[in-house]
């Protein structure tokens, strides 16, 4: 169980995290979302005892990170960015962490196997691609076989196969009863991974919901192409269905299944050239929640 309570972090006059509270329960994957610079990394660093909160606190199983008896056997963390000595091999990086934590040396080989780096384990990290470094960081998080995982942007630099592997892996971890907190600035990455999402922007909580709720909030839309679009729009309006023009001969209809639209068109002899169900993506909801993308340089 991860609990973040009224967490605030200021850097000078800038508020990076602003009175943020949320929880992650065992057996769930929580997607921690926000645009770049929203305060996700600062929140995770405060949770992991690397940054001191200005107010509030964050706990793991009721304890602050620094009060954990065996921290890396309790929490496996993957920090943002590359955190390796370029001249050290993956195996030696993990061995050094294992020795410090009193974890048997055989465990390093196990986690390297698990993340698919066993073959290149003795190569120096500077020869690794970004995706391989991410896998190594994940291997380090798994060293202590922890019940809680805190991963900051683990999908960065992974290829589609790697992202899929990560998704299955995180689902399996949650199915085993582990608590998984995973940050991302790409909501679609989380759609199939997370059970719940917490969205923040400018350090403030703007949504704390299940993925299903967010998808419902997104609502579905149907795109229709018809030579008689204007008349169809009137008929739909008469049936209390909101249709907006989306260009010549095109309509976007919200809140109605395509069958209902097709029925109305058929009853009035209107030709339909194309009709496409368009689930508004979570990405759209995300952008709506976090404001227009033009507002920031990203």
């Amino acid at each position: 169980m991860i609990a973040v309570q009224s967490l605030t972090k200021r850097f000078g006059s800038t508020i990076a995290v602003d009175d943020l509270s949320f929880e992650v329960r065992p057996g769930t994957v929580l997607g921690f979302l926000g645009p770049n610079g929203a305060g996700k990394t600062t929140t995770l660093r405060a949770l992991l005892g690397l940054a001191a909160p200005s107010a509030g606190f964050a706990t793991i199983d009721g304890r602050r990170y620094r009060d954990l008896q065996e921290p890396i056997r309790t929490v496996g963390a993957m920090l943002e960015g590359v955190a390796f000595h370029p001249g050290r091999s993956a195996r030696n990086h993990l061995r050094a962490l294992s020795v410090a934590a009193g974890i048997p040396a055989t465990r390093a080989a196990e986690v390297l196997q698990l993340v698919g780096l066993a073959e290149v384990a003795d190569k120096r990290v500077k020869t690794y691609s970004l995706g391989m470094r991410q896998r190594l960081a994940l291997a380090a998080a798994l060293l202590g076989d922890p019940a809680v995982l805190v991963l900051d942007e683990p999908a960065n630099g992974l290829d589609p196969l790697g992202i899929r592997w990560l998704r299955d892996f995180l689902r399996a971890q949650a199915a085993d009863g582990r608590t998984v907190l995973v940050s991302s600035h790409v909501l679609s990455e989380m759609a199939q991974t997370a059970d719940e999402v917490v969205v923040i922007d400018h350090g403030r909580l703007i949504a704390d919901a299940t993925v299903a709720e967010l998808t419902r909030r997104a609502g579905a839309a149907v795109r229709v192409r018809s030579p008689d679009a204007a008349r169809l729009a009137e008929l739909l309006a008469a049936a209390n269905l909101a249709a907006e023009s989306a260009g010549p001969e095109r309509l976007t209809v919200r809140g109605a299944p395509s069958s209902a639209i097709g029925q109305i068109a058929a009853e009035h002899g209107i030709a339909i050239h194309e009709m496409t169900d368009e689930a508004r993506t979570l990405e759209d909801v995300f952008l709506e929640l976090t404001g227009p993308p033009g507002g920031r340089p990203q």
Partner: peptide, 17 residues
């Protein structure tokens, strides 16, 4: 060098004291 390469993070995660 631990600060330079960012390994100080993982080091302090293992040993928060």
């Amino acid at each position: 060098g631990e600060y330079r390469h960012g390994t100080i993070g993982p080091t302090f995660l293992v040993t928060p004291a």
